[in-house]
Amino acid sequence: MREVALARSGLPLTASKGGVFVRDAGGKVLGAVGVAGEAGDYDEAFAVAGIEAAGFVADAG
């Protein structure tokens, strides 16, 4: 799913840990959050925690 979204964007993007889609309760993608600065697994966990704290659904793929 992530690779398809990147390919369709037409932008020079790279998928990596720390980038997490933000979805609503119905599964619609609202945006994304990217975190960098620590090991990838930690970056992803921080992104997920923030998304969920804001009341949204995190999709780390």
Rank of each mutant, 00 (worst) to 15 (best):
R2D: 04
R2N: 10
R2P: 00
R2L: 10
E3G: 07
E3W: 00
E3I: 06
V4F: 00
V4G: 05
A5P: 00
A5C: 04
A5F: 03
A5S: 12
A5G: 11
L6Q: 07
L6C: 04
L6H: 03
A7L: 13
R8Q: 13
R8G: 04
R8H: 06
R8S: 08
S9N: 06
S9D: 03
S9Y: 02
G10N: 08
G10S: 07
L11C: 06
L11F: 10
P12F: 11
P12L: 09
P12W: 06
P12G: 07
L13W: 05
L13C: 10
T14E: 12
T14S: 13
T14N: 11
A15H: 05
A15D: 13
A15Q: 11
S16Y: 00
S16T: 13
S16D: 06
K17E: 10
K17P: 01
K17D: 06
K17V: 01
G18T: 07
G18Y: 01
G18N: 06
G19T: 11
V20A: 08
V20I: 13
V20P: 01
V20H: 02
V22W: 02
V22P: 05
V22F: 03
R23L: 15
D24C: 09
D24H: 11
D24T: 12
A25R: 15
A25Y: 00
A25L: 12
A25T: 13
A25H: 13
G26E: 12
G26Y: 03
G27M: 09
G27D: 05
G27W: 07
G27Y: 09
K28Q: 14
K28L: 12
V29K: 12
L30D: 05
L30I: 10
L30V: 09
L30N: 08
G31Y: 01
G31N: 07
G31T: 06
A32N: 05
A32I: 03
A32R: 13
A32S: 14
V33P: 00
V33A: 12
G34Y: 02
G34E: 09
V35P: 01
A36Y: 02
A36L: 06
A36C: 06
G37D: 01
E38F: 14
A39P: 09
G40I: 03
G40N: 05
D41L: 11
D41P: 04
D41M: 04
Y42C: 04
Y42L: 15
Y42G: 02
D43V: 08
D43K: 12
D43C: 10
A45K: 14
A45F: 02
A45W: 01
F46A: 15
F46T: 14
F46L: 15
A47N: 04
A47P: 02
V48T: 09
V48G: 02
V48Y: 00
A49Y: 00
A49C: 02
A49K: 15
A49F: 01
G50I: 10
G50Q: 08
G50E: 03
G50K: 07
I51F: 04
I51D: 02
I51W: 04
E52N: 05
E52A: 09
A53F: 06
A53K: 15
A53V: 07
A53E: 05
A53I: 09
A53L: 13
A54Q: 09
A54C: 12
A54K: 08
G55A: 08
F56E: 01
A58L: 06
A60T: 08
A60N: 10
G61F: 02
G61Y: 02
G61K: 10
G61C: 04
